[in-house]
């Protein structure tokens, strides 16, 4: 028995094994999208006084999104004759990368992080904008008018909302004095559920994040009633599932996790007395799922905005507000209140 334990210990000390364990986070992401997708179906159904999926899997249709995924794999994959095949095929890889890469720096616990980069938050914001390139490529490579309109809308929306997002994050960095995600969480001690000097940053961040992941009320780029599915009109089968669905949900989870880390104290418990190491991932998951739930709620409460309203809101409200917020946080930081 001691031999076995010793073997296990040496095995766990091997850097390659550690790396393998850390990278397996990615394998949790795809099932996580299925779960979040299912919960969203249920939440939207109940908000609209429906039951939602009830049959697949038996109990309250729990296997609905799994069945969707299997269906996607079986579906024929069509690349239109007019399309630019190479660029068309590269899109799912890019959108997935843009969505998943941010997870490298998200701390589920002080040790439970793939890599605590010193430029953590900066990195997360940088990689999450890779997806835009994928969408633009999809829109152009499809050689379809709807795709082109969708991609142009997407680009316009993402550049408009990138700014408030980044400026809100900068305000958090000012308070923490570090860009490392673990430092940002630790700077929020002593902690009771909300980091109040960052209240305005939180609101700005959440609005901009909703727009960044193209969820209603900011989903004009894929508005199905106007432009089919925007940039992904010509996509089918698994390419569609990755390019749009999986990427959207993973980005959705990533941004909620980012918001949790930046504003809600990440893995810190709501009451300092409960700070027990093994429970930390639980607090993190709880906070992240609350944000996910609130965003689903918002989705089924507000109707879609118009393109000009969206741009006006970003440039005339959010950008000036986030600049003022930086001033506010800086002044607050220099006065000895906090």
């Amino acid at each position: 028995m001691p031999d076995l334990l010793q073997l296990l210990e040496t095995l766990l000390a091997n850097p390659w094994v550690i790396l393998g364990i850390k990278l397996s986070v990615l394998l949790i992401l795809l099932p996580a999208t299925l779960v979040v997708g299912y919960v969203e179906l249920k939440v939207m159904a109940h908000i609209q006084h429906r039951l939602g999926p009830m049959y697949p899997g038996g109990f309250h249709g729990w296997a609905q999104t799994l069945a969707d995924g299997i269906k996607f794999i079986q579906k024929e994959d069509i690349i239109p004759r007019a399309a630019d095949r190479m660029v068309f095929a590269a899109v799912p890889f890019l959108t997935m990368m843009g969505a998943a890469l941010a997870f490298v720096v998200i701390p589920v616990g002080p040790q439970w992080i793939i890599e605590d980069l010193e430029v953590g938050i900066f990195y997360a914001l940088a990689v999450s904008s890779i997806g835009v390139i994928g969408v633009l490529m999809a829109g152009w490579a499809s050689a379809n008018k709807y795709s082109l309109v969708g991609a142009l809308r997407m680009a316009g929306q993402l550049i408009a909302y990138e700014l408030p997002l980044v400026l809100a994050a900068a305000a958090v960095v000012m308070q923490a004095g570090s860009m490392s995600m673990v430092d940002i969480v630790e700077s929020q001690r002593p902690f009771w559920l909300f980091n109040w000097p960052q209240g305005l940053s939180f609101v700005i961040f959440m609005v901009a994040a909703t727009a960044e992941v193209v969820r209603p009320p900011f989903d004009m780029p894929i508005a199905e009633a106007e432009i089919i599915t925007g940039a992904f009109t010509e996509y089918s089968g698994m390419r569609f599932a990755f390019g749009l669905f999986a990427a959207e949900y993973i980005a959705f989870i990533a941004l909620s996790a980012l918001a949790t880390t930046l504003f809600l104290g990440g893995y810190l418990p709501p009451i300092p007395a409960l700070d027990w190491e093994p429970l930390r991932p639980l607090w993190f998951l709880l906070k992240t799922s609350s944000i996910l739930f609130v965003l689903m709620w918002v989705r089924w409460t507000y109707p879609r905005l118009r393109e000009d309203q969206l741009q006006r809101f970003a440039w005339k409200v959010l950008v000036p507000l986030s600049l003022a917020n930086i001033f506010f946080v800086g002044a607050l930081k220099l006065t000895p209140i906090i």
């Binding site: 990615l26 394998l27 794999i73 799912p92 998943a100 890599e115």
Partner: peptide, 17 residues
């Protein structure tokens, strides 16, 4: 680590496709 992660995303998407 970052490169390995990015590589794994490509493998995952490519493998499923």
């Amino acid at each position: 680590t970052f490169g390995m992660f990015a590589g794994l995303v490509v493998v995952l998407v490519g493998g499923t496709l």
